[in-house]
Design a protein around this nucleic acid. Structure first.
Lengths: 336, 336
DNA sequence: TTGAAAGCGCTAACAG
DNA sequence: CTGTTAGCGCTTTCAA
């Protein structure tokens, strides 16, 4: 790989000193128009692009922002990542992306690598065992925004969605439609989101004056295959169930498939509510009623907080919104 | 932001010279165990992480790989990006991601910015007007792998899928099931993929000994809403159509929705074939028959070619594969 | 307005 | 095996 042209060569070609060439780039007002033109001509001729590495050595802000998430291929994260990328682009910044798969060790490794890259800051979805990593970060005083996670003690900003409230409105919706026997297909009890959503479900149940009978099952993973399996379990053990809340849209898609395999109409025989509102939720044959997480706003806000660094850490919790589509309706017993 | 500890401070704390500390990091075998221990202790105590900026100045390979695609949120790209990220991670490398939205100007800007970051190489999905950008790249002799695009003259490696062949097998499938009147919902005629897929459709039509009547319509965008609209047009103007090939899965999802709105059974009344095989294709209520593009292999191969830099540029075209699911069947007229 | 020179963190070449 | 030193590309004093 040929060595790219340096600012020294630019200066030489333009017949000025290195410092003057640098001024053309960083303080053009200090340079006379004539010399500026000369230098710019040299820059064009050589195809000179300033090296960020050299620049960073002088402690100029990096244009790289680390983004560490659970899994980039997951639509929830890829939609958010897309928004982060778009926001950063306005400032000529780039996301440098890594996935942890939920492994705290991997998370710590990624963090070290990103710190080595001297990123300007890090947007992080912390795993449960992330205490160690977070200590590393605070000791470095590098800007961090927690993503899809409420704020922790240490004065880092955070953006998240009120998972508990989201689950609550999902159950309220089924309740108000007239459903009394409700299934809840949750993810692994170890992940924070699953725990928070369960709290919301329980809160709704209590608020219903004991009108509701709730049955929770845990899917192995947050995907459609697990949702399908969990739905079959649920319907076999509790055939009285008429409404099901799934902890994300992929699980809900699997649940719909299971219902269909049993010749149950959606929503005639069984209502299904998802969580996330990924792009395809509205595109399904039976468009999915779901609790919308504003992925784009989450991503944009996280990027904004990172770049702007408000004086005080912000803990922003977005309010989830119920999007009613065609997968929910009153149970048969309530219809004429 | 506090200045992070430098290797100089490490050396000082360990009571050795700067060069020795450097050797501990880069050539540990040259250092005695005793001093190595001392230095490692100092590294731990200070939380020292070597600066990639300083390192890169010495022309050490960068750990950053630029990835420029059309749109990160598009499942085709996000699945590939995930594979790229996973492959790079094995070498402690990271993708630095940018989206062009198909704008050649934006593409050129992103390229300049990435070159400024001194990335180790670039994985690029070139837009149609990318000639200028590519010239910039070849003049820099920076490793480039074209993604989802066949190789161009200039000796860059490329990974892509044989779009023409993919369209061909889709039409062959419908033909062999007995369909004679076939609709083709294509994307904008300006994008290369749409052009290539049309060629495949035409080739199949010719190979059928004029048994096939094909009708092409162009959707405005590659999304479900456009597919739905196009499908309605198609079925209104050509009610004899029994099979439809869509240039991607999102269009196919929209087409399915349109068919359903018209009370047409899939596949009883109309067969639908997609293209891509995105994750949800198999999860739809009627799982979609589609032409699979191996996104994971595409991403992995691109990353591998970039890091390994084979002596000669490779132009790798993956062979698409027909995945038959439940959205296709013989037309009514062929059944008993 | 311009030029000269120091120095950011690091690696490698060389000397001891 | 260890220390010394030059220099990567750049920005920023400081002097002229």
């Amino acid at each position: 790989m040929k060595r790219p042209p340096s600012i020294r060569e630019v200066a030489q070609l333009a017949g000025v000193s290195l410092g003057t060439a640098s001024n053309v780039l960083n303080h053009p007002e200090r340079v006379s128009t004539a010399t500026r033109k000369k230098v710019e001509a040299a820059i064009d001729e050589l195809g000179f692009i300033p090296s960020e590495a050299g620049r960073r050595l002088r402690r100029v802000d990096s244009k790289l922002v680390g983004v560490i998430v659970f899994d980039v291929a997951n639509p929830f994260f890829s939609e958010a990542a897309s928004a982060i990328e778009a926001y950063l682009a306005q400032f000529s910044c780039f996301p440098v992306i890594g996935s942890t798969g939920g492994d705290p060790t991997r998370e710590a490794d990624l963090l070290r690598l990103l710190l080595g890259q001297e990123v300007r800051g890090i947007i992080l979805t912390p795993s449960s065992g992330a205490a160690e990593s977070l200590k590393l970060l605070s000791s470095r005083r590098i800007p961090v925004v927690l993503f899809d996670h409420p704020a922790l003690e240490d004065g880092m900003s955070a953006v998240s969605v009120d998972d508990t409230r989201g689950a609550e409105i999902a159950i309220e919706h089924l309740h108000s439609l007239g459903h009394r026997h409700i299934g809840f297909i949750n993810g692994s009890a170890r992940v924070r989101q699953a725990q928070a959503r369960r709290v919301g479900v329980e809160r709704s149940a209590r608020a219903s004056h004991n009108e509701l009978t709730l049955t929770e099952v845990h899917a192995a993973r947050f995907d459609a295959a697990s949702g399908e399996k969990a739905m079959h379990e649920l319907l076999t053990s509790h055939p009285e169930i008429t409404g099901v809340f799934c902890a994300n849209d992929s699980l809900a898609i699997g649940a719909m498939r299971a219902a269909r395999q049993r010749n149950l109409g959606i929503p005639q025989d069984i209502s299904i509510v998802g969580f996330d509102d990924i792009d395809v939720a509205r595109e399904l044959i039976t468009p999915l009623t779901t609790v919308r997480q504003p992925m784009t706003e989450l991503g944009t806000t996280a990027a904004q907080l990172l770049l702007e660094q408000p004086a005080h850490a912000q803990d922003i919790a977005f309010v989830p919104e119920l999007i009613v589509r065609e997968s929910t309706a009153p149970p048969r017993s309530w219809r004429i």
